[in-house]
Design a protein around this nucleic acid. Structure first.
Length: 189
DNA sequence: GGGCCGATTGTT
DNA sequence: ACAATCGGCCCG
């Protein structure tokens, strides 16, 4: 049963990004709003980004924007994109190595991508660096049920212009709440 | 300081 | 296919 106080220890996140990404599917994203309301929903679609990956913000080294990605795992990396949206990532890898998993969709908002997810859950730059392993945070990840490998779909990542051949997007096949682009590309694959 | 680009999304 | 919209990043 669902217990939002059950969180992961850092060694869960402090592993290779490609190992962590699929295991984040089915875990529970939790958000405590300013008014005290707690939102929670399973993560259903993610993408992996690593330091040696041309599509990663950290590909060209440490900058102000992506410095959180180089820090300890289990913290949030939130960036502002296209002058309009924020995107939420979970930092992975050992301290000093950049890596993150983009949360593309959760199991509540149908047909919405990472930008609208952050808008609806009021996740913004102030959450950059938030500890996702502590229920005292206003944003954290709780343990969910473990998925079978057969339940997970794999495909190229969405919206990138580099390293498009890498099959680094993972999603729950049976999920009805995938983003629109996700559904489109799933249907045609 | 200038110019280009982008891990998005909604409209044409 | 393209516009909206602006911070980050690279260059000079």
């Amino acid at each position: 049963m669902l217990d939002l106080t059950k969180v992961y220890s850092q060694n869960f996140f402090s592993r290779p990004t490609l190992a962590v990404a699929p295991e984040l599917l089915g875990t529970i994203l939790c958000r405590k709003l300013p008014d005290g309301t707690i939102l929670h929903a399973p993560i259903v679609e993610v993408e992996a980004y690593t330091q040696d990956d041309p599509a990663c913000h950290a590909a060209k080294g440490l900058t102000k924007r992506c410095e959180v990605m180089f820090g300890p795992a289990g913290y949030a990396y939130v960036y502002f994109i296209y002058g309009m949206y924020h995107c939420l990532n979970v930092v992975t890898e050992a301290n000093g190595v950049a890596g993150a998993v983009l949360i593309r969709a959760i199991g509540t908002k149908g047909g919405e991508g990472p930008g609208k997810l952050c808008r609806h859950w009021q996740i913004s730059s102030i959450h950059n660096g938030t500890n996702l392993m502590a229920t005292e945070s206003d944003l954290w990840i709780a343990k969910g049920h473990k998925l079978l490998a057969s339940e997970i779909g794999i495909s190229p990542r969405i919206g990138i212009s580099k390293a498009q051949e890498r099959m680094w997007r993972f999603f729950i096949k049976s999920n009805q709440y995938l983003s629109l682009k996700e559904k489109r590309s799933t249907k045609t694959q």
